[in-house]
Computed example of a mutant assay.
Amino acid sequence: MSSPPKQPGSFDNPPNYVFPHHCLTRTLRDSRKTPVVLVACGSFSPVTYLHLRMFEMAKDYVRQNTDFEIVGGYLSPVSDMYKKPGLLNAHHRVDMCSLATEESSNWLMVDSWEAFQAYQRTAVVLDHFDYEINTVLGGVQTSDGEHRNVRVMLLAGSDLIATMSEPGVWSPVDLEHILGRYGTFIVERAGASMDQATDNLARWRHNIYLISQLIQNDVSSTKVRLFLRRGLSVRYLLPTPVVDYIEQHGLYLDDAVGMGPSPEKGKEKESSGSTPKKEIYLGNSVAGAAEETS
């Protein structure tokens, strides 16, 4: 069974936290459709055009193949407590994501709730979005004024499905909560096969939507950081404001600079011994997952 969602008021918010909803569509265009919000969890160190492109691919897929209507999208950068090579501190990562979305999108937002506190399991992060959108904001409405709850769904690369299908990596309770209660859109990534993984997750197949990548793009944050350390240009791999921000602050000249504090013992685990790597959610390939690809 799926674990119950957090109760109203039970979420611990970072200081001065305000849930962003300025780009959230509050009235459905088509009352026959189910409102959906996409949530992408990852390191975003730094955010690339591929991270943003995945939202657009999902939007096209939803419009052409489902009865959903997307009313908003969110990037949720991981906490500093999820320490890993190349993980710049949360303030820089949130700032870069904000610059990227403000420059390029009228429907994507950055939520800092996960970034500015202790490590949070993905299931809890999705509960947080569900609470803020449906309990606090009251969901959305149709043109006739009918109230509708918004369905929160995880957006990820196919690396995620590969880890979810591996025994012992994710807790069964969290898998049921994420895939059973919420569901996910999985974007195909080079080097990560989706077929075998989805076979192992057959019980949730109705909640897993697979999106083929029609134009292959293997840009990863790992490659971008490597370019920066070698003094190579990364323009047109990242949004221009993000490139300017990196140059202004002298970031990624050394991967050890600007990293967050070490995680508390056990915080890097999902629960019940599961240890998924959040950085691979928007990743490049299973082979590169251990290094970091988002």
Rank of each mutant, 00 (worst) to 15 (best):
D218I: 11
R205M: 06
W204L: 06
S193N: 11
M194Q: 11
H206D: 15
R205F: 00
A192C: 13
V187K: 05
D218W: 03
D195T: 11
T198D: 06
L201W: 01
I215F: 08
S193I: 08
L210T: 14
I208C: 02
A192Y: 01
N207F: 01
D195M: 06
R225N: 08
L201Y: 01
Q196S: 13
S212L: 09
V224G: 02
Q216I: 15
I215K: 07
R203W: 01
D199L: 11
T222I: 05
R205D: 11
L214D: 12
R205G: 04
D199H: 08
V187N: 01
L201V: 04
S212T: 14
N217S: 10
Y209K: 14
Y209M: 15
N217I: 13
R225W: 00
A202T: 07
I208Y: 00
V187R: 03
T198P: 00
N200R: 14
D195W: 02
Q196R: 09
T198I: 12
M194N: 05
H206C: 08
G191T: 03
V187H: 02
R225D: 06
I211D: 04
D218S: 09
D195G: 01
A197S: 14
R203L: 11
I211S: 02
Q216Y: 07
A192S: 15
R203M: 14
S193R: 05
W204H: 10
A192F: 02
Q213T: 12
I215H: 06
G191C: 04
R189W: 03
L214S: 13
A192K: 01
T222G: 13
I208Q: 04
L210Y: 02
N217E: 15
A197R: 03
S193T: 12
N217K: 03
S212Q: 14
D195K: 09
T198N: 08
D199T: 10
I215Q: 12
A192L: 04
T222S: 15
T198L: 09
Q213K: 08
S212E: 15
A197Q: 05
V224I: 14
L201K: 02
A197N: 09
Y209A: 10
V219T: 15
R189E: 12
M194C: 06
D218C: 08
W204T: 09
S193H: 05
L210A: 07
I211C: 03
A202H: 03
E188W: 00
